[in-house]
Amino acid sequence: MNTVLHKSETRGNADHGWLNSKHTFSFANYHNPERMQFGMLRVLNDDTVSESMGFGTHPHKDMEIISIPLEGDLMHKDNMGNATVIKAGDIQVMSAGTGVMHSEYNNNPDKPVKFLQIWVFPDKKSVEPRYDQITLNLKDRKNKLQQVLSPNPDDEGVWIHQNAWFHMGGIEKGKSLKYQLKDNEKNGVYAFILKGDVAINNQSLNNRDGMGIWDVKELDIKADSDAEILLMEVPMA
């Protein structure tokens, strides 16, 4: 088993006033040659956007982009004709492929919106751009791992052009879960602690810590407090 530990306070930080973004991996003006990516996981940004503010229209290409709102409502518009609001309990995916233009704004006039922006390298380039979003049943992750993303359009959750699986779990203090990798020969898992205190394979992790794990078949997860976690299984190369 190999691991890499990223404590919350070691992340890059960009505070633009209207946007406070914590970068697990190198992004924009934050560059750390030792934190470029984890396998095919390229970006994990923990964003807080002020009331009625947001990202103006900008381009993306050849990237699988996943947005997971944690608090508040996020307005999305793109040049594919989508104009939607995503909120906590939703997950959004955009295959940028040959190129898309989109904007994202806090849809709330009275409170910030908090969301995760995640980029995964696709397994093929120049695909037709695609957008999807779904609402998940939060009860399906109480003391278990709810699949929210996979490579398969017919599976639970959204899908992307990559051999990747994401799961989210809400675990009560003292409870334990196991996660078996879908492809333990080629994939690793990046675990991100959304809330609380968790031990994964005996490594203690706290709020907003991240840990990458590879060359392993399964994870043992134990909640040392009420906790919420995101597991991202991705190819390592």
Rank of each mutant, 00 (worst) to 15 (best):
A14R: 13
I193P: 01
R208H: 05
S103D: 03
K195C: 01
N143I: 10
G56T: 10
E233I: 04
P235I: 03
Y190C: 04
P153D: 03
G12D: 01
N143Y: 12
S67D: 02
H102F: 09
E128H: 13
L205N: 02
M211F: 03
Q180L: 06
H161L: 09
F38L: 02
E64T: 11
A96D: 07
S26N: 03
Y105M: 11
S26Q: 03
L177M: 08
F55P: 08
S26Y: 09
G17I: 12
G196V: 10
E172G: 14
K195Q: 07
E9L: 09
E51G: 09
G39F: 02
M101H: 09
G39E: 07
N108T: 12
G196M: 10
N143D: 15
E218G: 10
P69I: 07
K114L: 06
D140E: 15
R35T: 03
S8E: 04
I200K: 06
V49W: 02
I65P: 07
I160D: 09
E64P: 15
I91K: 14
D197N: 13
D62C: 10
G99W: 06
I193F: 04
M101C: 00
V127C: 09
G169A: 13
H6P: 01
D140C: 00
D220S: 12
K175T: 08
D224F: 11
L231Y: 07
E9C: 04
P109D: 11
